[in-house]
Design a protein around this nucleic acid. Structure first.
Lengths: 137, 137
DNA sequence: TACCGATAATCAGTGTGCTGTCAATCGGGG
DNA sequence: CCCCGATTGACAGCACACTGATTATCGGTA
């Protein structure tokens, strides 16, 4: 018999689900989802990138990135600008509003993370982070 | 600036995604997904339950459970039987075929898990399991 | 018995991940 | 300069997760 309740795969899925839910709850008033936040977080580091390079950086499928950008565009947080030297590609840029949200949303993310990780000691959090990095590849 | 690449939430999402993908790949030839497998794994422990009690046990949303069961039913692995004492509810039971798959799929799951966790030592795996349990709640 | 709140499951709609297909465009070789 | 393979992004379709509304039924009470 398979001890699903104690399998790391199952536990991982449930913990992920809980974290996602917590985050989603807090982002709701902004009309944002955790995935959209994560894309924004990458754009705050560097924007003016093509959808493909964003897809590589974030490890999100190219078709999914398209949909994410659609929604962020509707919210007025990013815009698609033409690329002069390649008419196939867009440059994905933050709007003024998209930049403004950085401080506020980062604070929110920090608070959610703290709540999410509250069952763990600082030491355990550090170990978890390095373990996850090993598993990410 | 938010260091998304090192945030536990982001890493968790990516690791989950990798595990899900690995599992999905292996289950593909059965026409099953990891979520469907996890529901089966619960049913191997105990079946003849209502959708609601399965939803509680597995911590999967009630509406999602309905869809999962739809697909498992189409594959001929489970069936919905009427509940004599409550005409609203179904009893979700494994079919012969659904029971037969247990040994095979559990072996597959064990192999996938081993591959997924191969970057970690046995010690690290144990620590990860107990950390995830703390975070699950 | 007739009604009422609670409960089981479904349906509709949104967000996301993935596969596969397609059109437009790019870049390099003949 | 034209053709071909590669690349960028769009779109359709399937699998979920979750919210909220709806339908059918249950159980208890007036």
């Amino acid at each position: 018999m398979y001890d699903i309740e104690n399998s790391i795969g199952f536990l991982l899925a449930k913990v992920y689900q809980r974290g996602f839910g917590l985050f989603k709850e807090q982002l709701d008033s902004y009309g944002l989802t955790p995935k959209q936040f994560s894309l924004l977080a990458f754009l705050w580091i560097e924007d003016d990138l093509s959808q493909t390079s964003l897809s590589h950086k974030t490890q999100v499928d190219r078709t999914t990135i398209g949909g994410l950008i659609d929604r962020l565009e509707k919210l007025g947080l990013v815009k698609r600008l033409p690329t002069p030297e390649d008419r196939r590609a867009y440059r994905i840029c933050l709007t003024e509003r998209g930049r403004e949200l950085e401080k506020e949303l980062c604070g929110l993310a920090a608070r959610v993370t703290e709540k999410f990780l509250s069952p763990l000691t600082a030491e355990e959090q550090t170990v978890l982070r390095s373990t996850l990095k090993k598993l990410r590849q």
